[in-house]
Write a protein that binds this DNA or RNA. Structure first.
Lengths: 233, 233
DNA sequence: ACGCGAGTTTGCGCGACCGCAAACTCCCCC
DNA sequence: GGGGGAGTTTGCGGTCGCGCAAACTCGCGT
């Protein structure tokens, strides 16, 4: 296999503060893979054989209940590490990861985590920092679910997506991968019907512009007002 | 200050797999403190000066929204490590910790985390395992909030408390610290009115027995049936 | 080019749960 | 021992958002 170039990953958060030789050492043990939209990268309760870094594309992480209800736990963007069950003392993945767009991914065998993270302490530190951020994000979601109405939650979710993955267009900021009403519903604990109604209403007020698998936030400022406005007090 | 005995902490999860000399080294740098019920151990957004292990009592971790709404993020039980913002790359605490009962706590300066966790690798590993568990718990809560009705959520919350902190009594299993309807409401994203109604109904059906700041689960099995029964499908 | 399915829109009715309000009760403290 | 306040109970009305159903539309694949 052709060696991958350290410059590929040098600027990604998981590898911050690492020397070029360290990056080369890491890359040498990595396997690169492509996943088309809709492909499953790993499966809930499956053995955690690998951990990953997303080079390009977007990944949706989904938890499925015993009753078959799906809840989107988070979206992974370019440059993020994911599937790190092993670093947290798990042996199986707690959720399913699905490519929300065509993806390019680096994968390392879970078995090497211990060795790699001690040999490259920066990797461990960066990873745990990420985990800390995700724990906070999760708590933030719990707080939102507890205190906000559906309208605010959907507005917050869109703003988060736009911040994370927004791409400027002439109309406004577009979410950079195909996303359905159903997806948004699974992020916010609403139904796709309610999400559809909200988007329609916002569209007619000029806040967003959306279509089939496509959402553009036209007026982030006014959307922010909705997100922050009169929660239950 | 009298030296603390390693046997105090030997059997606690954060210190699993550590030699007696290591425990002594850790204890030497720890400060023991007592906090009466209601006392604040650390405050949201305050500088993360210390991390802690709870030796006795119970601690409620609360996140407050800008609007003043409170949401209980989790309860800490005996033997758990908490306030570990530093290990996750934070410099401030993301929530407030309040003693739910009189507590005995060990505290270490945050500044020593790096040194201690490298000198005692088991401490780091145990801690990150705990963090992994909490991340999963948080996601589980998100899923519950998304898919379950209030009745199921309250039932789940009680069962979790009972598992975590239950004390056998002749009537059933009692939650081992004073807990109000309001507290339960803040855990589940409900109002204290609704929680009160549910407890009253369950009491009349013989599932629980509760009073002022006191909840006893009489029939965990039937409560489980409620928790798992017909979620939105 | 066209058909089919995935994704979306919209209407209607209803029920769970909140919001407000008021009364009650127990326990703690002076 | 007797306030007084914290914690709890209960009623009532309103509404947000779900559940169900049906129609529509776009775009992908062959």
């Amino acid at each position: 296999m052709a060696a991958l170039d350290p410059s590929l990953i040098r600027d990604l958060p998981p590898f911050a503060g690492m020397a070029t030789e360290e990056l080369a050492d890491l890359l040498q043990r990595a396997r690169a893979l492509r996943q088309p939209r809709g492909a499953t990268v790993f499966e809930q309760d499956g053995e955690a054989h690998s951990f990953f870094v997303l080079l390009d594309g977007h990944i949706r992480v989904v938890r499925t209940t015993p009753e078959g209800q799906q809840v989107t736990v988070r979206y992974i963007s370019e440059g993020e590490i994911f599937g790190i069950a092993a670093a947290l003392g798990r042996t199986t993945y707690p959720a399913t990861a699905i490519a929300a767009a065509d993806c390019v991914i680096l994968a390392w065998p879970t078995a090497q985590w211990a060795e790699l993270s001690t040999r490259h302490p920066a990797l461990g530190a960066n990873t745990y920092k990420t985990v800390g951020g995700r724990l906070q994000d999760a708590h933030t979601r719990v707080v939102e679910m507890s205190t906000e109405q559906v309208e605010q939650r959907v507005a917050h979710a869109l703003l988060r997506l736009v911040n994370q993955t927004g791409r400027r267009t002439e109309d406004g900021i577009e979410i950079d991968f195909p996303i359905t009403r159903q997806d948004i519903a699974e992020m916010t604990g609403a139904t796709l019907h309610t999400v559809s109604r909200l988007l329609s209403a916002w569209e007619s007020r000029g806040l967003v512009s959306s279509g089939r698998r496509r959402v553009v936030v036209v007026d982030p400022h006014r959307l922010m007002l909705i997100a922050e406005s009169r929660e239950r007090e």
